[in-house]
Amino acid sequence: MEMIVMPLNEFTPAKARQLTDIEFCAWIGQAMPGDRLEYHRGFLGIDTTAVISTMPEPERRRLGALASAAHRAFEAALVHLVQVRVGPDRFAYLAIARTKPRHAPIPFSQLIATEEAA
């Protein structure tokens, strides 16, 4: 599984096959404090919104699940989330691994995306 891990000042185009929420969680499990992962490049708010995103529906859903997993990891104090402008209306979204908390472990099921049936 190839991951994009880079120093904060290096930005290369995101890989063609995009990261999934499961791959993101796997990266968190093995990341050392300070490791960086670019998990999206674009405009996350627009790219994940159904009525305005130009992404195909499966890609938009994958990205929504990834963004949710990143936010849950942030709330669990596992990563810092950073965005860096790389052009007009274009950002690199980075997760920076934090020191793992010493308290009770966080179950994997809390990190992966779950959607309730509508």
Rank of each mutant, 00 (worst) to 15 (best):
F11S: 10
I4V: 09
G45P: 07
P7N: 10
P88T: 08
H40V: 10
G64P: 00
E116H: 12
V86P: 03
F91V: 02
I106H: 03
A31L: 03
I46F: 11
P107E: 13
R72G: 00
I52Q: 11
I22R: 11
P33I: 08
L66M: 01
A70S: 04
Q83N: 09
C25H: 04
E59H: 06
H80K: 06
T54S: 13
A118M: 09
A77P: 00
V86K: 08
G87I: 01
Q110A: 15
E116V: 13
P56Q: 00
R60H: 00
I28C: 15
D47P: 04
F11Y: 14
G29T: 10
L37H: 01
G29K: 09
V86W: 01
T54I: 04
H71I: 07
F91K: 00
R72W: 05
A50H: 08
A77N: 12
I106L: 11
L81I: 13
A65Y: 02
L37S: 04
M6C: 07
I22Y: 07
V79R: 11
T99H: 14
M55G: 01
R60E: 03
T54M: 11
T48S: 01
P58V: 03
A67I: 01
G45F: 10
E38P: 03
E115S: 15
R60F: 01
E57F: 05
V86D: 10
P105M: 08
E57Q: 09
I106K: 07
Q110T: 06
L44P: 01
P33D: 02
F91E: 01
A67C: 02
E115T: 14
R85E: 15
F74M: 05
A77C: 07
D35N: 15
A97E: 05
R61D: 06
E38I: 15
A65S: 09
R17I: 06
D35T: 04
T12D: 06
L8V: 05
I46P: 00
P88C: 05
S53G: 02
P107C: 06
F24P: 07
S109M: 09
H80G: 03
A77E: 12
L78W: 06
F108A: 14
M6R: 15
D21C: 02
A14F: 08
E2L: 12
G64Y: 04
M3A: 13
G29D: 15
I28E: 08
L66W: 00
R90M: 08
L44H: 00
L111H: 08
A70V: 14
I52L: 08
L8T: 03
G45E: 15
E59L: 03
P56I: 05
N9W: 11
F43Y: 10
R62S: 07
G87P: 00
R72F: 07
